[in-house]
Design a protein around this nucleic acid. Structure first.
Lengths: 156, 156
DNA sequence: GTTGAAACTTGTACGAG
DNA sequence: CTCGTACAAGTTTCAAC
């Protein structure tokens, strides 16, 4: 079965390859080849095709933030003064390493971010000192994640 | 119960290893060794130590959802009826592949999720058909991410 | 902790079906 | 698109420092 998305053609074998690598980026090509039942060279060539298309945007080691003492995740909705340009605020947020995601969203807030901190004190410092001190930020609304029950990529 | 290992000792070399692998999980050990200036065997041993500690929770290929036609990311705050148990709702959300993250948060909402969809029609379907039909869900509030400007892991 | 070397496994290129 | 082969490169183990 072939699925066409834009100009990209991904068949079942490509999906197998991606699924294996999405789970563990260091899975050897030859191991995938054995599981799928075609030669390593074929897998290799398909991988190159997939990389050349923009389907694969990289591979990453995932570190466990808890092991580093980062136990508190929170989402913060940020209100900006009308005069304040969004890109300028993002530039400032970029400098705060605890900011993991930053979105320009519809709705109440100008900016919506995900942050990771060590404890409540750390969270308070981030909110009151780091984020509130960015010029243009007028107000924030914070939601602490008590537990993350799902964390995954889109299914292929 | 396992206690998070706070007395983990990470030196500069470990950090170099992690930084290289966080950027590209397929970076060869020997390449890291050359950059750091110690032998491949030493890097290998350190990596095993890091993997045995719970600092590394895996490695993943990152696929670009846009190449699959998923262009719209949104956050949805979900209100649950008081009678509804959170775990049951999460179980239902787990079945929806477009739900990438699910958090139990403080604040207005019982559940806060991140979803990825192909277009506005798809988004509407998810909200009105998939999510609203979960028993116990009373109301939702949606924030569409028009642009994601930051996406990264915690700095080490 | 680190090392180099040995033994083994993978990655990659290429010609051919 | 796939394969087999062949060589380069990376991984893993281990005795020894």
């Amino acid at each position: 079965m072939k699925v066409t998305n834009q100009n990209l053609q991904i068949d079942g074998i490509d999906k197998e390859i991606l699924r294996a690598l999405m789970e563990d980026a260091r899975t050897p090509i030859l191991e995938i080849a054995r599981n799928v039942g075609i030669s390593g060279a074929a897998i290799h060539q398909r991988l190159r095709k997939l990389e050349k298309s923009e389907l694969i945007s990289g591979s990453k080691f995932i570190i466990n933030p808890k092991a580093l003492g980062y136990t508190t995740m929170a989402f913060v909705g940020i209100y900006l003064d009308k005069a304040m340009s969004n890109p300028e605020a993002v530039k400032q947020l970029q400098k705060i390493p605890e900011v993991l995601e930053c979105h320009y969203t519809t709705g109440n807030w100008s900016i919506f971010i995900k942050i990771l901190c060590k404890d409540n004190e750390h969270l308070m410092h981030l909110l009151n000192k780091e984020i509130q001190s960015i010029s243009g930020v007028s107000r924030t609304e914070t939601f602490v994640s008590l537990q993350q029950q799902i964390d995954r990529q889109i299914k292929i």
